[in-house]
Amino acid sequence: MNTQRLATNIKTFAGWLLVTFVAAALGAWASQDAPAFYAQLDKPSWAPPAGVFGPAWTALYLMMALAAWLVWRVRGFRTAPRTLGLYLVQLAANALWSWLFFGWHLGAAAFVEVLVLWALIAATIAAFWKVKKFAALLLVPYLAWVTFASALTYACWTRNPGMLG
């Protein structure tokens, strides 16, 4: 690989990391008081402790950025605008959930939104699969986590109508 191509790959990977972690930061901004709020919720016995979420999401965001970069490497943004555009839309939906649940305490809206997010992730996996199978596989843990998060969102919303009404 020549030096110019290597530099381009490094820059674009850094760009996908930046875009992905900006979305993460927007969600984190809404979640500043999440540990205290989460501690107050009546949660099911299978709910993880608050300390699990940060490391899990960090790993997922890294895999998401890598997946987007791998698709970009195959097609570039100009030749895969729908595929990478879908990635960006699901990323925005991802950030929105934190605002709905932790920022605005809207349990019903957060539950509906996490289902939309799940569908967007599944669509992104399908789109990535057509371009680069490994990129699609990198998103499978994300889909699994959001599946779990959907159940947890529903459980917390229905158990806490006064706090998530």
Rank of each mutant, 00 (worst) to 15 (best):
G54F: 10
I121C: 02
G76H: 07
L60R: 04
S31Y: 06
K11Q: 11
W29G: 05
H105I: 02
G51L: 05
W104C: 02
G15L: 15
A144P: 12
V116E: 02
L117Q: 04
V89F: 04
K11N: 09
W99D: 08
R75N: 11
L117D: 04
L115C: 12
K132A: 07
N9W: 08
A80E: 01
F128L: 13
F53M: 04
Y154I: 06
F13D: 02
F134H: 06
L139C: 10
V114D: 03
V22K: 00
I125H: 03
A92H: 02
G162N: 08
L70I: 15
G27Y: 00
V140L: 15
F128I: 15
L152K: 04
A122C: 01
A59N: 07
K133D: 02
G103E: 09
T12Y: 09
L84T: 14
L62F: 02
W69Q: 07
G51I: 09
Y38E: 02
A67F: 03
W145Y: 12
T83I: 15
G85T: 14
G103N: 03
L106N: 05
A56M: 14
A7T: 14
L84A: 06
S45I: 12
M64P: 06
S150D: 07
T3G: 00
L139P: 12
F134K: 09
L100S: 03
M163S: 10
F101T: 09
A23F: 13
F134D: 08
G162W: 03
K43M: 05
T58I: 06
R159T: 09
L86M: 14
M63A: 15
D42H: 11
A151I: 13
K133F: 04
T12A: 06
S45P: 00
V146H: 02
A149N: 09
P35I: 01
T8K: 13
D33L: 11
F13C: 08
A65R: 04
F148R: 05
L26S: 05
G103I: 10
G54Y: 07
T20F: 00
Y142E: 14
N9C: 10
V52I: 15
A92E: 00
T79K: 14
A80I: 00
A126S: 12
A59S: 11
W129A: 13
G54K: 06
W16L: 12
A28W: 00
